[in-house]
Design a binder for these strands. Structure first.
Length: 254
DNA sequence: ATGGCTTGAGTGTCAAGA
């Protein structure tokens, strides 16, 4: 199984790039974030024509997540059980016995802000949900845009970013708490190029200068991680005209 | 240099992203 995650920053704008990427890379499953599309406007027909089943949870203007899968999507869930919230940031489904939890973790705006507190509370609730789901589904992937760079090597300029949102201590602790459930960051299971990032600011030629962060992740239960044969970041779509600011992350399982 | 681009909403200009 080839599994991917991609924050597309507006599915309406990025749909041609997404469909082209699906046609060329043929992932079995792709998890999308920041679709910014209400469910009634979701381009389901285009995905189905490309050979994918789709499930979405979207809203106007902000957030929104979706899963496209070549095999049927079962046991769909769209909420964190103990976190009542209007923001559409999670969608879970089972594909061929593998549980997939696709998340768009809140950005957090600035350390100490209301949005930052909301991010940490959301992550605490996610940890509880992931723990419960892992007991029920031995093969599980928690993947998406985590808006956290877990270590300094995931940051182009750790000194400049020191203590700020996306890298702050409490955010990294929340990420480690997910790993402590037994989840594995499969990207780090393999040798990777130095300065591997998944997001680059649109401004200041950040992509050209590789001024990025690694904030998009594929975390797998041990049983699933054991079958992972590679995990890579595909930088190509980031170099296109009118790109998303995020690149897809892809993992392959035998 | 707290800017720098991009998107959606909506038609002037701002919030939000990371």
């Amino acid at each position: 199984m080839k599994l991917a995650t991609w924050n597309v920053n507006s599915l309406r704008v990025r749909l041609p790039q997404v469909l082209d990427w699906l046609t060329r890379y043929r992932p079995d499953v792709v998890c999308l974030q920041e679709t910014k599309t209400e469910d009634r406007n979701f381009p389901a027909a285009e995905f189905e024509a490309a050979g994918y089943h789709v499930a979405c949870s979207g809203q106007k203007t902000y957030n929104g997540v979706a899963i496209a899968s070549r095999r049927p999507l079962k046991e769909l869930a769209r909420t964190l059980p103990d976190f009542p919230d209007e923001q559409k940031r999670l969608i879970a489904a089972t594909v061929d016995g593998v549980r997939l939890i696709n998340v768009y973790v809140p950005n957090g705006a600035a350390v100490g802000s209301e949005k930052y507190d909301y991010k940490l509370a959301w992550l605490q609730s996610l940890r509880r949900y992931a723990g419960v789901q892992m007991k029920r589904y031995p093969k599980l992937a928690l993947l998406g845009d985590f808006n956290i760079a877990p270590e300094d090597r995931d940051v182009h300029d750790p000194e400049a970013w020191q203590g700020s949102v996306l890298v702050s201590g409490p955010e990294r602790e929340a990420f480690r708490a997910l790993l402590e459930l037994g989840l594995v960051d499969v990207f780090r299971r393999f040798d990777q190029p130095p300065e591997s990032f998944s997001w680059w600011d649109y401004r200041a030629a950040a992509f050209r200068r590789n001024h990025g962060l690694r904030i998009d992740h594929i975390l797998c239960s041990r049983a699933l991680a054991e079958t992972c044969t590679c995990c890579t970041i595909d930088r190509e779509p980031r170099a296109l005209e009118r790109p998303s600011d995020h690149a897809p992350v892809v993992a392959v399982f035998r």
